[in-house]
């Protein structure tokens, strides 16, 4: 029993260490983490096989939360139960948290430096570009017919014009798709619900451009 407990602790320590390394090694959000998780968890350590990795991707991408954080929880839970899941999520979150707080502190000291102010003003444009890219990538997977195009435009309008709380939009959205598909069925239309090819190449399966 004692050895089991030690074994468990050791695995949790390993999970924590691996995800502490993965967490801050990526910039630009969770989806950049997937190839690194694949390398560390599947190739190097064989914690998951390829089929489990595919499971991880679909679960982590469809559930609420960042895909990187969700993937960490998935790997940790598979490897060492709830304790493993906690070790992984702390590992993946903690370094970024510390770095972000350190940057905030640095900003307090250097924030008035005119060169830094100018650089941040320039970076503003870069962040808009990055967000636009994210929207474009998501749109490629999401906007596949007139209905989905309408839903995307309605989402923007509901926020710009009516200032609706986005949380409500998401909650409505969870059921909107089901209602639309049912409605179309009643009208005798069939809807192709995703654009995922039936025989995805491995490239597409493990490095897709979107994760939901």
């Amino acid at each position: 029993m004692q050895r089991d407990w030690r074994q468990q602790l050791k695995v949790c320590g390993e999970l924590f260490a691996v995800f502490t390394k993965i967490g801050p090694s990526t910039f630009g959000g969770g989806y950049a983490m997937i190839p690194i998780i694949e390398r560390e968890v599947v190739d190097k350590r064989q914690w998951l096989d390829e089929a489990e990795l595919a499971d991880m991707m679909s679960l982590a991408g469809s559930a609420p939360g960042g895909v990187g954080v969700n993937s960490a929880v998935f790997v940790g839970y598979r490897k060492a139960g709830i304790a493993g899941a906690i070790a992984s999520i702390v590992g993946v979150t903690l370094p970024a948290l510390l770095i972000v707080i350190a940057l905030s502190l640095a900003y307090v000291f250097f924030g008035t430096n005119p060169k830094l102010v100018a650089a941040l003003k320039g970076i503003h444009g870069a962040v808009i570009a990055l967000i636009l890219m994210a929207a474009y990538r998501m749109a490629k997977a999401a906007v596949i017919d007139k209905t989905t195009a309408g839903v995307a435009i309605a989402t923007v309008l509901l926020q710009v014009v009516f200032k609706l709380n986005p949380i409500y939009i998401i909650l409505i959205g969870l059921f909107a798709g089901i209602a639309i598909i049912k409605g179309k069925e009643l009208l005798g239309q069939r809807t192709n619900m995703d654009k995922i090819p039936s025989h995805p190449s491995t490239q597409e399966l493990f490095a897709p451009e979107y994760y939901i």
């Binding site: 998501m138 999401a142 989905t148 839903v151 059921f175 619900m193």
Partner: peptide
Amino acid sequence: SSLYGLRP
């Protein structure tokens, strides 16, 4: 179906 509506 739910994701079909959620993605856009």
